[in-house]
């Protein structure tokens, strides 16, 4: 009996020793050198693997950081300035400070302002619809409302509003990784600076049709009337293809453009409520202003 025990012990020990030797040589032979800094950088990153930096994952980004001469082109939008500062410290390089950004939805064509022109019946996927046709409303630029951006968001920072049929960004959770921007086949979502005190002003429309046509398909479309351009004292607004765009670098958040917009397509976010707010609504229904805008457009009509 004891013989069996002893033999077993010896056999197992010999196998163990042989295996250990093989493993030792194998590890020597197949060793791949990796900069230990990569591990350190990776630890400093949020490891969400969202791809927001442009690299497939956090480790690839860490590698790129270690390799790069300076960090000006590398930025982890999820971690923000703090994480980049830590990374820079580890590597002894300088990080660039960037403004915090947040995703904004540049379409406010909810069910009640944008009438349907047909019923879509097919796979519930924005890209499939966008490749098939212009969508189930008169606006060929607007949100399709099937929520591919919500599915793409890895931080639960978006949801579909049942009432409007539009996606909503939860600002506190949004990391500006840009997954939704890439997912949207209509290029509706934009990353904009979060702004001072998280206040920002943007044109919530990307309709490039002439004013009259845009207005017909959606009540809150930008009609390219350029009233906002005139109201802006800081040259922050530009009109291209009948569509206004506010440059967030130049905008000083004075809110003048919001007041003059006849369709209410310029949105202000996180501003304190103002006393004259009801008046704005009145304005949006002021037919004269819309008419002025229309006339202006028709005279501008291209050949």
């Amino acid at each position: 009996m004891s013989e069996i025990v002893i033999y077993t012990i010896i056999t197992v020990s010999v196998i163990g020793i042989i295996a250990a030797i093989i493993l030792f040589f194998a590890s020597q032979k197949f060793k791949v050198y990796e900069d230990p800094k990569i591990d350190l950088v990776e630890e400093a990153l949020p490891t969400a693997n969202c791809g927001g930096c442009g690299y497939p994952g956090c480790r690839n980004f860490a590698e790129a950081c270690v390799k790069a001469d300076d960090l000006s082109n590398l930025y982890c939008p999820v971690g923000g300035n703090e994480v980049m500062k830590n990374v820079a410290e580890i590597l002894g390089k300088n990080a660039v400070d960037k403004e915090k950004q947040v995703a904004v939805i540049r379409c406010s064509g909810s069910y009640n302002v944008r009438s349907r022109t047909n019923n879509y019946d097919g796979a519930e996927n924005c890209t499939i619809v966008a490749n098939l046709y212009s969508g189930d409303t008169g606006c060929q630029f607007g949100c399709l409302g099937l929520g591919e951006c919500v599915d793409a968001c890895g931080f639960d920072a978006m949801y579909m509003d049942e009432e409007t049929g539009l996606p909503v960004v939860i600002q506190d959770k949004c990391t500006a990784c840009g997954d939704c921007v890439r997912a949207c086949p209509k290029d509706i979502i934009e990353l904009r600076n979060a702004g001072k005190k998280d206040r920002r002003i943007f044109v919530s429309c990307i309709n490039e049709e002439k004013g009259g046509i845009a207005k017909k398909s959606c009540e809150v479309a930008c009609i390219g009337c350029s009233l906002c351009v005139k109201a802006c004292n800081y040259d922050a607004i530009e009109i291209n293809n009948f569509l206004a765009y506010i440059d967030y670098e130049k905008c000083v958040l004075c809110r003048k453009c919001v007041d003059v917009c006849p369709t209410g397509s310029i949105h202000e976010i996180n501003f304190p409520a103002r006393k004259i707010k009801p008046q704005k609504k009145e304005k949006s229904e002021n037919p004269d202003l819309v008419k002025i805008a229309k006339d202006k457009n028709s005279s501008e009509t291209k050949e």
């Binding site: 047909n118 019923n119 879509y120 019946d121 046709y133």
Partner: peptide, 8 residues
């Protein structure tokens, strides 16, 4: 009445 649109 609105038409139905779907992929083939």
């Amino acid at each position: 009445k609105l038409f139905t649109v779907s992929p083939s």
